[in-house]
């Protein structure tokens, strides 16, 4: 095993180009577990800790450019307003110690269906800034997850940042685990209202081979909100609409039975979370004129 310690982003890209099998390590919260438990012996470890700019973020007009290594703690502390869904998701990540080290770049690189950030990114709308010595490109989040723990990165590419659409409306995130802290998702759900485009977006974690959106549910809800004039009149969403939305979200799952839960439970739980997060976000939208709210009220 070789330990590569690039001092700059350019050096890192060059190292990755020279050694496409090199495993990038930033927070270490995935890679080191695999090494400690003898699951993986990469030929090269590519340390990204010395590249300070990966820990920076820029808040732009439309979006936030979030460095790949910005720790979850910083997202919770500093980006709650711009990225409320991701901030809530960050708060559910493992433990405070892990949140101090891990970042969204690692979640994307590992591309586990159980990664906590994915549903929030899918719901908010995001693009992954991937770069290699060949150049830089933006990969839409919808095209990023290609299979179980597989993503759209080329072997010589590294994740530089994620461009996440700034919240124009309330966002929520919910995750089921069998413990009240420090737990891997049995399943997770993210929901974002986009009043600017009068659309909603969703994200589902741990309930399919990859993180997915519930597109049929989004289409249904978009149509229902439009038809009822809900965006303008701010009426309470009818229970039947919420119920059908929840059912369509359940239907978007393609889960398995494993030690963390049954497939049947995952479908059920995604439905419950879809209904609740819809209620929370919509109540927030009605009550605050579209301003994002960090924690939902008691319904």
């Amino acid at each position: 095993m070789d330990f590569l310690r690039p001092a700059s982003w350019e050096e890192a890209l060059a190292a990755k180009a020279a050694h496409p099998t090199a495993v990038p390590i930033a927070g270490g919260t995935d890679v080191m577990v695999e090494i400690n438990f003898d699951h993986r012996r990469p030929e090269y470890l590519l340390d990204l800790n010395r590249i300070g700019e990966l820990g920076d973020w820029e808040v732009g007009e439309e979006s936030v450019r979030l460095g790949a290594s910005v720790p979850y703690t910083a997202i919770m502390d500093h980006l709650r307003g711009e990225l409320p869904g991701l901030a809530l998701a960050s708060h559910t990540v493992a433990s405070p110690q892990i949140r101090n080290r891990g970042g969204v770049g690692g979640n994307l690189g590992t591309a586990s269906p159980a990664g906590d950030a994915h549903p929030a990114l899918l719901a908010a709308g995001a693009e992954v800034e991937a770069e290699s010595v060949r150049g830089s490109r933006l990969i839409p989040i919808d095209d990023f997850y290609t299979g179980v723990k597989r993503n759209a990165l080329a072997p010589d590419e590294l994740i530089r940042a994620v461009h996440i659409k700034k919240a124009a409306g309330p966002q929520q995130y919910s995750k089921v685990g069998t413990r009240n802290a420090m737990v891997i998702a049995v399943c997770a759900f993210g929901l974002a209202l986009h009043p600017d485009t009068r659309t909603v977006r969703t994200g589902i974690g741990s309930a399919a081979p990859t993180p997915v959106r519930a597109r049929a549910a989004e289409d249904f809800l978009n149509a229902a909100l439009e038809e009822g004039g809900f965006w303008d009149n701010g009426k309470i969403i009818t229970p039947s609409v919420a119920k059908q939305f929840a059912e369509l979200c359940s239907g978007a799952c393609n889960p398995i039975d494993d030690v963390r839960g049954t497939a049947s439970y995952r479908r059920h739980a995604v439905g419950v979370m879809a209904r609740r997060t819809l209620t929370w976000t919509w109540e927030s939208y009605r009550g605050t004129d579209g301003t994002a709210q960090q924690k939902g009220r008691v319904a």
Binding site: G28, T29, M32, L45, D47, Q97, N100, R101
Partner: peptide, 12 residues
């Protein structure tokens, strides 16, 4: 910053 030292590679 509090971290789990088991998940920090020595070289980092």
């Amino acid at each position: 910053v509090p971290v789990c030292s088991c998940l920090v590679a020595a070289g980092q």
